[in-house]
Design a protein around this nucleic acid. Structure first.
Length: 514
RNA sequence: GGUCCUGUGGCCGAGUGGCUAGGCUGAGCUCUGCAAAAGCUCCUACACCAGUUCGAAUCUGGUCGGGACCUCCA
């Protein structure tokens, strides 16, 4: 049977397969250096609040990160913070969105950036996303970006115009495949030229800025060999990934909407600079949609995370817990679109509750010492459970199919609950299978999927108070004083605390989701 | 317009050519003082048309619908 202890990358029985956007197929994952993985994920632009759509890549790659570590890899996970303002619309007068908004909010640009960075970290924390190994900021790497641009100019693939620097896509395309990642055809890119104002600086429409000359009113500005300005959007990721992960690294992740032009341009820049393709495996998550439409600022259909957690948004029927969102995301294959709706989210909420309570029941089963034998009492059931558990890794190794793992977990739920209710004896399973059930569930539920309890019932005083009420109710029931016992239960119900009379006469309680 | 993806039961969503994923909802039953929870059972779908095949949700072609990217975007 496949053991969860890994055999470090190559040599393992079942190999990890990932869908590589570059080749458009699943490939066996082999890190450049055995045992080590370098992973870069595009992080947030901290000029505003994160919304529901943003949560998808962070949760997705958090699970990728956790799973790679589970396989025994030492992972360096780099996720940037984009805190340098870029031009709003290409072709128009360059304007820095961060500084523009800062004026509106009467904040220093860095103050604004700090505010939204803090808010981002707050949300990541609620989502139970592990912090990356390195979280570099664009403003902290201006020097690296300038150096990189200089190299590209020296190589002859960029040109300077009026204090701005542009990457020469046409030249690059002569001896490289620009469009390989995104499936773009260079000739079409050049043909679909629209006449935009301010385009005259560029030799070709497809060219992109490496450095932009800053207008006098620009607050965020740095000195460069080409004058005062600010870096282009794409160069920061190239500079920071190169610095921390090397000229070539294993995984680059991000949303599908970044395929073009962002990632395509990253490849071009880095390839010229470092003489090697920067990334082995490109992994892209699909979008979260709302009524079938991508959630984005330009479509004006954004639900911010603060609104989502508070329920304070016209489209929301209620507040949703961060764990519900995490579970919701995990219930879908990361390469499929995920459509938001109150109905879907509430289904996820209930599903998570059911899974979590079964999981807690399983953990408690561990506390009691049951008789376990080597041979299972129910051979068929034992075999079924073993298979379901073994498939956890099998599914995850098949391009992180979290949805299938969850389906298996739900098949285990009735068995676990029945063991708790003693309608299925624990001895139906062999000692080995029972232990595997507990260890695998703990590993996947908590450590790999990163799920946590929705209710914070770990308050000592509350537990004391509840114990008191439970005791009083138990006593009342023993006296058949159902008026009192129902009163206690009903009043607690109104406070959002549910009491359950268990089969064995005990009473358990749980707090409803906010 | 170009490139690509997609269309599964009331809703959400897995699906490697044959053996009816899973979740939510709904109905019934069991347990229970009553509830809640839990357990059991039921509701058997693959846009449409044609083709390949002994056999297709799964492959091929076409039709229609939805979406993403081509512009800041997770």
């Amino acid at each position: 049977m496949e053991s969860k202890s890994s055999s470090l990358g190559d040599g393992g029985k079942a190999e990890l397969k990932v869908f590589n956007s570059l080749t458009r197929q699943k490939e066996v994952f082999k890190p450049i250096t055995p045992g080590l993985v370098g992973m870069y994920v595009c992080g947030p632009t901290v000029s505003g609040e994160s919304h529901l759509g943003h949560s998808r890549p962070y949760v997705t790659f958090d699970v990728v990160y956790r799973y790679l570590m589970h396989l025994g890899y030492k992972v360096r996970y780099v996720r940037n913070i984009t805190d340098a303002g870029h031009f709003e619309e290409e072709g128009r007068e360059a304007e820095d969105k961060i500084s523009k908004k800062a004026v509106l909010e009467k904040l220093e640009p860095m103050e604004l950036v700090q505010k939204y960075t803090n808010l981002f970290h707050w949300a990541m924390n609620l989502f139970n996303c592990l912090p990356p190994s390195i979280e570099p900021t664009a403003t902290g790497h201006i020097v690296e970006q300038i150096n990189m641009i200089e190299k590209i100019i020296a190589a002859g693939y960029a040109y300077v115009v009026n204090g701005s620097v542009y990457f020469d896509v046409m030249k690059y395309a002569q001896d490289h495949d620009y469009g390989k990642l995104s499936g773009r055809v260079i000739d079409e890119l050049l043909e679909t030229t629209r006449d935009l104002e301010g385009q005259e600086e560029k030799r070709n429409k497809a060219d992109f800025a490496l450095w932009k000359n800053a207008a006098p009113e620009h607050i965020m500005r740095w000195k460069s060999p080409w004058g005062i300005g600010f870096p282009g959007w794409h160069i920061e990721c190239s500079a920071m990934s190169t610095k921390y992960l090397g000229d070539q690294f294993d995984i680059h992740g991000g949303g599908m909407d970044l395929l073009f032009p962002h990632h395509e341009s990253e490849i071009a820049q880095s390839t010229i600079c470092n003489h090697i393709a920067p990334v082995r495996y490109w992994i892209h998550n699909n979008m979260i949609t709302i009524n079938g439409r991508k959630m984005s600022k330009s479509l004006n259909n954004v639900i911010k995370l603060t609104e989502l957690f508070s329920g304070n948004h016209p489209m929301l029927e209620k507040a949703y817990h961060p764990m519900t969102i995490r579970f919701f995301i995990l219930q879908t294959y990361y390469r499929s679109t995920l459509d938001f709706s109150n109905e879907a989210l509430q289904a996820a909420e209930k599903g998570l509750k059911r899974l979590w309570e079964a999981y807690e029941n399983l953990v408690k089963l561990q506390a009691a010492s049951y008789e376990l034998r080597e041979t299972p009492g129910d051979i068929e059931l034992d075999a079924r459970i073993s298979k379901l558990l073994a498939e956890f890794d099998e599914f995850m190794k098949d391009d992180f199919s979290t949805a299938k793992v969850l389906a298996n977990m739900f098949e285990l739920v009735p068995v676990i609950n029945s063991m708790k209710d003693k309608t299925i004896p624990v001895s139906a399973l062999s000692a080995r299978t029972f232990q595997l059930l507990q260890t695998q569930m703990k590993l996947f539920v908590e450590e790999i999927f990163g799920l946590k309890s929705i209710t914070e019932a770990d308050n000592k005083k509350l537990q004391g108070v509840m114990q008191l009420l439970v005791d009083i109710r138990k006593e009342a029931r023993a006296r058949k004083d159902f008026v009192t016992s129902d009163n206690i239960r009903n009043q607690l119900q109104q406070l959002g605390i549910a009491l359950k009379d268990e089969r064995d006469g005990s009473i358990s309680w749980s707090i409803d989701t906010p």
